[in-house]
Amino acid sequence: MEKRPLIIDCDPGIDDAQAIMMLAASGAFDIMGITTLDGSCSLQQTSVNALFLSELYGIRTETAIGASRPMVRSGMPYAEETNGSNGLAGYSYERPEMSLYGGLAWELVYRRALEADGNLEIIALGPLTNIATAVLKYPALTEMIKQIVIASGSSRAGNITPYAEFNSFRDPHAMSVVLDAGFKRLVMVDLEASRKAFMYADEAVRMGEYYGRVGKLFRRMINYNRDKARENGERDDTPYYSHASVAAAIAVNPELARLKPYYALCETQSTLTMGQTVIDWHDRFNHRPNVALVDSIDRDGYIKLFFDCLSSYSEKDGGNANE
């Protein structure tokens, strides 16, 4: 089957590292570029991480840096607690050799969109600053993108405030611009989707059981997440969530999710609900739908895809990997 052209917009980040692994290993995509922004950690760190991950996963593409801060908000914290000081659970690696694309993120996106002649897809795993900047600068872009999948927003509970998800809280204005932009197909993989596609704790543990360089990184990441969870008083059998990799799975195999069209907005003004995505469940705003929201997901199918992809990089060690 022909590979689908894809741009990965990301701020790796542990779950982004997991997601990019799936996007690379699945074989579904011709990855035409990676764009980075600040989010889980600084722009500089996410960019170096992205270069490292490209090299690690064998992705041959150009990486372009993008936004170093949210569009409007200032003084926003990074997610170091979740991702570790360097965004990758403190995993140390040799500084990657691969160089950066000459232009900025939105320029690469637009250029690739022109080249792909209507077939380009985007998956945005972090805050939406880069994509918002792209559509503000190039209004015609929305017509040129076949599909954009975003790992942002929360239709019910949030994870950084009671109702807001981290990415949309960090740059709610960008989220609002993207929701409003008029993309032909905008798949919103919100926090509820990742909650439905949870990993049982014993499944998550399996992430640490692979040989090789990829295995080593995944072992470090899952151990870091589990240690933090323990420090926070969570039980060892608490499920594990990887928001970005659920979005990646749905991008790879759309049949894993059932989607429903809704009109979604992002709150940009309230102090209590800043960054909350408001889903117009009952058509109160009388507005045509702008997102395809994940309604249900094949959890087992997601888990299978995740581990199929991971094991394509290395043999499983049966629980004693210690490279």
Binding site: A67, S68, M71, L104, W106, T133, L136, K137
Partner: peptide
């Protein structure tokens, strides 16, 4: 709007 977009898209 245009000038804000210019400043966002062209930090250089």
């Amino acid at each position: 709007t245009n000038i804000a977009t210019l400043l966002l898209a062209h930090p250089e």
